[in-house]
């Protein structure tokens, strides 16, 4: 089975709120002293792919797009022993939203040929819209199944499982299919072995330009311009918490219990 995993590099979601800043002119987050990390759901997707490969004759290709920094994400994927890695070198596209991203990815996938499984993370830790998988599928004319947490290869294609609001679902799907992966107990990203981290820097990584995949900046920008960020700001913290006071702890607990009971009883 040929598996493609799309990886996104994002601003560390765990950067402390004090260190997080936005550029009011460019309407973008400022990197500052924060690090760039691979989006956690993408890592879950990669882990799912690695597990699939363990039980089958499969090949994993990792792909990302972005400036040179994004290469680090692919090096990490190499450390986890993906078979191939591609980076589409894109200039920094302002507000490259899901539509812009899907445009780049779909064009690259088309150029790479057929994959049986195209896996993406459920959403990203920065803009977190969870749209890219669906858009890639539409652009490639493929089916898409979202929020998948388990994949099994069967004769007819793949069995996919997911948790939805109405219960657990099992799906059977032909391949190729686009799948968005969510986090679950079984796909916690593994840690690479040190030797593999060292070797990862020697692996050959393919870098393509937009031109190589038949796109230009303008086309991507046009796709991305379907939506536009008009404001980006850090919300002011409004501390309106009323701290419960009282002479004794008993009094304070009684007061707290009363307030809780009032709400609970009105439900």
């Amino acid at each position: 089975m040929k598996i493609l995993v799309c990886l996104k590099q994002i601003l560390d979601p765990e950067v402390s709120p004090r260190d997080f800043q936005v550029d009011p002119d460019r309407l973008e987050a400022v990197l500052g002293s924060a690090s760039l990390v691979t989006n956690i759901f993408c890592e879950n997707a990669l882990e799912t792919a690695l597990q699939l490969r363990e039980g089958s004759d499969s090949e994993i290709t990792a792909m990302t797009f972005g400036p040179d920094d994004a290469e680090e994400t692919l090096r990490k994927a190499f450390a986890l022993k993906v078979d191939h890695a591609y980076r589409i070198a894109t200039p920094e596209i302002p507000h490259c939203n899901s539509a812009g991203a899907a445009t780049v990815l779909a064009a690259a996938i088309k150029k790479l040929g057929t994959f049986d499984l195209i896996m993406l993370g459920r959403e990203s830790g920065d803009w977190g819209e969870g749209q890219t998988a669906g858009l890639v599928a539409e652009m490639l004319g493929l089916n898409c199944v979202s929020f998948v947490d388990q994949i099994d290869i069967v004769d007819a294609g793949v069995h996919l499982q997911r948790q939805t609001d109405v219960g657990r679902e099992k799906l059977v799907s032909d391949t190729p299919v686009v799948v968005s992966i969510t986090n679950t107990e079984t796909n916690v990203p593994r840690i690479p072995k040190t030797r593999d981290i060292m070797l990862a820097h020697r692996k050959e990584l393919t870098t393509w330009t937009l031109d190589d995949i038949g796109l230009d900046e303008e086309k991507v920008t046009r796709a991305a311009n379907a939506t536009q960020v008009v404001e980006l700001y850090i919300p002011e913290e409004t501390s309106s918490c009323e701290f419960i006071t009282g002479d004794s702890l008993d009094d304070r607990i009684r007061e707290l219990a009363q307030r809780i009971a009032n709400i609970v009883q009105s439900v």
Partner: peptide, 23 residues
Amino acid sequence: QDTYSQEIAPRLAHRLQGCSIGD
């Protein structure tokens, strides 16, 4: 906000040649 709505939204947007915004 349910699973089905979330997975339908971007694809429907694409088919209707509109834009999609989540959450």
